[in-house]
């Protein structure tokens, strides 16, 4: 056994290149742009063509992305006002071609809506509910879209960047007033109920 380093991923084409090529060939109208970094291709799609594009990625013999890995969102509140605030991220895996691809659809804060994919991938059901729960993204057409992780009566969507998260302040020497009972704390202290 020699002490050579493990082969790096750069020897093979970027993951998801297969999906990007297929979409550029079959559905150029859906493809906004592709982005290749760290050996992974990210495909940016137009939301209107999302269902058709992912069905294509699932069924086409060149792609066969049959295993849904996850759906999530990334919140970018500091983008320019005209820019969409949320990236909805879909990650799929192809066992046949040993590949994975990432599809991103961008939606605005005013209309955080994308069509549901639960009829394409049964496994997307819960992931879409989770994204709805934590980000407030509306998956249009989902049969049972309600909170999954948090209690039904929860207010707000905690993974949005503007959601103040910390549970309870910790009293150190520089902020000893936190050690006071709630009624005796100064009124202007920052803080949150959660």
């Amino acid at each position: 056994m020699t002490t050579t380093a493990a082969p790096t991923a750069s020897a093979r084409p970027s993951r998801g290149r297969r999906a990007a090529d297929l979409l550029a060939r079959e559905m150029p109208e859906a493809l906004l742009r592709t982005h290749d970094e760290y050996g992974e291709v990210t495909v940016y799609l137009h939301a209107d063509h999302l269902v058709r594009a992912l069905t294509l990625l699932r069924d086409d013999g060149d792609a066969m992305y049959t295993l849904p890995l996850f759906v999530t969102a990334v919140d970018w509140p500091d983008r320019e006002p005209a820019q969409p605030r949320f990236d909805i991220v879909y990650q799929l895996r192809s066992l046949q071609h040993n590949d994975e691809c990432r599809v991103i659809v961008q939606v605005t804060e005013d209309a955080p809506q994308v069509p549901t994919l639960e009829r394409v991938f049964a496994g997307m059901d819960w992931h879409e509910r989770e994204t709805f729960d934590l980000f407030g993204i509306d998956f249009v057409g989902h049969h049972d879209l309600h909170r999954i992780l948090l209690p039904e009566d929860w207010v707000g969507h905690p993974l949005r960047k503007d959601y103040v998260s910390f549970g309870e302040p910790v009293a150190f020497t520089h902020n000893l007033e936190w050690a006071l009972p709630a009624a005796e704390r100064p009124r202007d202290m920052p803080g949150t109920s959660r």
Binding site: L150, P158, Y163, S165, F166, G167, E168, V170, R194
Partner: peptide, 12 residues
């Protein structure tokens, strides 16, 4: 005490 999870989800 809530331990390391001083966030929205965990009762402190």
């Amino acid at each position: 005490s809530g331990g390391m999870f001083n966030n929205y989800a965990i009762i402190q």
